[in-house]
Every structure is written in C-alpha cells, then in structure tokens.
Amino acid sequence: MAEKILLYCSGVNPSVLEQIDSPPEKQKYAAQGASVLVTSLIATCSGSYALYAVFGTGLVAVPLGLFWGGSILLLDRLMLMTMRKRRNKPLAQMAIAAPRLVLALFVGLTVSKPLELRVFQAEIQQADHISIISTLKEERATLEQAKKNAEADAKEALKTANQLDASVIPAKRASARDYRKAAAQKTREAAQLDKRITEKNNALSTREKINPKEIKLTLLRQVVILEHLAAVEPAVRYTGWVLSTLFVLFEILPIVSKLMAKYSVYDAALENLETTGIRLQEKLREVSVEQIDRESLMVRQYREAIAGMVRDEMIRASQQQVISIVRDIERVPGMAVRQAEMTEAVVDRIAAEIKNAVDTPTNSHQDKAASTWDFSALRRKLENLFWH
C-alpha cells in the first residue's frame, strides 16, 4: 500500500511499470514519490502555520493548510508526469525542465518562508517586545522633555509678570496680565503632559510584565520584524538562507533526479507506448476516411438507382397518358392514319424531357427537386390541337 502511494506521488504510469517488471525502477520512482510526499507535508505544516497567524484559529488554518499541501503534491506530480526522458536529447530535456525548475524554485521559497518565521518565532516575539518598550520609553522621554519646557516657560512668564507689576509705568503693568495668562496656559499644558506621562508609565509597566512568548503577532508584522533582524543580525540572515535553500532543494530534487537519471527501461517502454498510440490514431483516421469514401460512393449509387427508377416510372406514366389521349381522337376523320406517328413522337419527346430533368441533378450531385409534370394540362393542349 505504501509503495502504491509513493508511486502515485511520483507520477509514474503503473501499467507500464508492471509490464517491465523491474524492481530497481520501482525503487527509483518510489524514492521520487517520497520526496514529493515530504515536500507536500512540509507545505501543509507551513501553510497551516501561516494561516493560523492570519486567522488565529486552527479550525480554519488546518483545513486550508491541508488543501495547500495537497495542491503542492498535485503540482509536483504534474511536473514529473509531463517530463519525458528522451534518448540522446540532453538539450531538449533541459529546455523542457527549465520552466519546471523555475516553478519549483518559487514553490520552495513560498513553502520555506512561513517555516522560517516559525523557527525564529521566539526572536521575533522578543524583538517586538523590546521594540514596543523602547518606543514607549522614547515617547515618555519626549513627553517629559515637553513638560519641563512647559514648566520652564510658565516659570519664566510668571517671573516677567512679577517684574512688570513692580514697574511704575502703567503700560508695563498692563502687559503683566498677558504674561500671567501665558504662564497659566503653560501650567495647564504641563498638567496635561503629566497625565500623558502617567499613562505611558502605566503602559510601560504593563508591557514589561508581559511574557514575550504570549504575544500574538500578525503575519505581516512577523515578516517585517524578521527582515529587520536579518538586516541587523548576520546569523539570522544566513540561517534564513540555509532554510530557504533546504526547502528549495527538497522541491527541485525530483526534477533534478529525473534529469540526472539515465535513459531506463521504463522510459523506453513509455516512449514505445506513446509512439504506438500515435500510429494507432493515424491508422484509425485513415480507416475513417476510407469508410467515409465508401459510404459516399454507396449513397451516390443509391441516388442514381432511385433516379433511374423514378425516370422509368415517369416515362411509363407519360406514355399511358399520351396513348389515352390519342385514342380519344380516333373519331376525328383523317386522324387515325397519323395516330401511331403522333404517339411515337410525343412519347419520345416527353421521355427525353423526363430523362434530362431526372439525370441532371444526379450527375451534378446536387439535391434538386424533380420537375412536377402536369399531365392534365398536356391532355388539354392535345385535345385542342386535334379537335380544333
């Protein structure tokens, strides 16, 4: 059972493989199927983790991850099925495999990225935790500096107002009120900044108590942090390259192994099967053309036979009509002598017309309706000719 599953994953033709009955060939293609199956399992885990980071629930992530892994398996199997090992054609083989290698490269990178995020999950969570704490401290420091500036401005304005109150000049004493208003405004600003500083301290205290492993990050946030870590830490960058290369190699391994393999008995049997199938189809097409020609000849002969029967029947009917008309004029004096001559002339003329009308559409292979003969009109013409 396991061997059948692996052979299915490899995209091999089981009937051809059974005919050649070669254990080494079965082992080779079973190994290729194992690599495809492993890649699909990795893709399932990778897709499930990536979707869990997006939806936050395994009820959605697991089924979609299985669908993703199954899609990768079918795609890899399709690429292997469409590759044919040709005898003494390495360049053509490389040209056929090049698009599949590029596709396998992209699939490998797509599969490796979510697993790379999973490998560095602890570092990503820690970096995010430290980044948020640093941001809160920077914001708190900015607010504290703004508070100090506001308090200093309020103190300076209040000092100036006191100095102006001591002046003997009325205009200066009047301007002291403006300085006192400015000092009050700065004092209110300092009080508001103090509240915001208290909020930042509370948020910072709460954040510092959180365990970084309990932090839930979106997929995009994880990618951004990982790219930042890779730019700062060479070890993270090199490890990411190694993981990506490993999964890419897993993905392209079946195709590369098929390119590197020698022309085998299975390849020869499959090529022979394809050649035989093509010849069989060509032979069937030739037989179909011959059958159509025979049927066309039979139809043409049938039409000619029908046309002859119709022609003979119409001639016979016309002869009877003419004879009956001519017999009616025996009572006319002097016409009995010409009866036989008239009958023969009229019958020959009608027979010629009928034969021409019937044979013309048959010989030209066109479906034309035969002319309709009005014997009653012919009878009236002959009666008028002989009686008047």
Rank of each mutant, 00 (worst) to 15 (best):
E3P: 02
E3D: 07
K4F: 00
L7E: 04
S10T: 13
L17G: 11
P23D: 15
E25N: 06
Q32T: 07
G33V: 10
S35D: 02
V36Y: 02
L37C: 11
L37S: 14
S40N: 14
I42G: 01
Y52D: 09
G56F: 03
G56K: 12
V60H: 08
A61K: 07
L64S: 14
L66Q: 07
F67Y: 05
F67V: 11
S71A: 01
I72C: 07
L80G: 09
M81F: 06
T82N: 10
T82M: 06
R84L: 06
K85S: 08
R86Q: 14
R87Y: 06
L91N: 12
Q93D: 02
R100Q: 04
L101Y: 05
F106R: 12
S112P: 07
K113L: 00
P114W: 11
L115W: 00
E116W: 02
V119N: 04
E123D: 12
E123P: 05
Q125V: 09
I133E: 01
T135R: 12
K137N: 14
N149L: 07
A154N: 14
V168T: 12
I169C: 02
I169L: 03
P170K: 15
A171K: 12
K172Q: 10
D178H: 13
E189N: 08
A190H: 09
Q192T: 12
S205E: 04
E208R: 14
K216V: 11
L217Q: 07
L217G: 04
Q222D: 01
E233S: 10
E233L: 03
E233R: 15
P234M: 09
A235S: 02
A235M: 01
V236K: 03
T239M: 10
G240R: 05
G240P: 03
W241G: 11
V242D: 02
L243G: 15
L246A: 06
V248P: 00
E251A: 04
I252V: 13
L253V: 14
L253W: 09
I255E: 06
S257Y: 06
K258S: 00
L259S: 10
M260Q: 07
Y263F: 05
Y263L: 06
D267T: 12
G277K: 15
G277F: 03
E286T: 14
V289R: 15
L297K: 13
R300M: 01
Y302G: 15
E304I: 10
A307F: 01
M314E: 03
R316K: 06
S318H: 04
Q319D: 01
S324T: 14
R331Q: 03
R331T: 06
V332H: 04
G334H: 12
M335G: 04
A336L: 01
R338M: 05
M342I: 13
T343I: 10
T343D: 06
E344L: 05
I350A: 13
A357P: 01
D359F: 01
T360A: 12
H365G: 04
F375M: 11
F375W: 08
F375R: 14
S376R: 13
R379E: 09
L382S: 03
N384I: 09
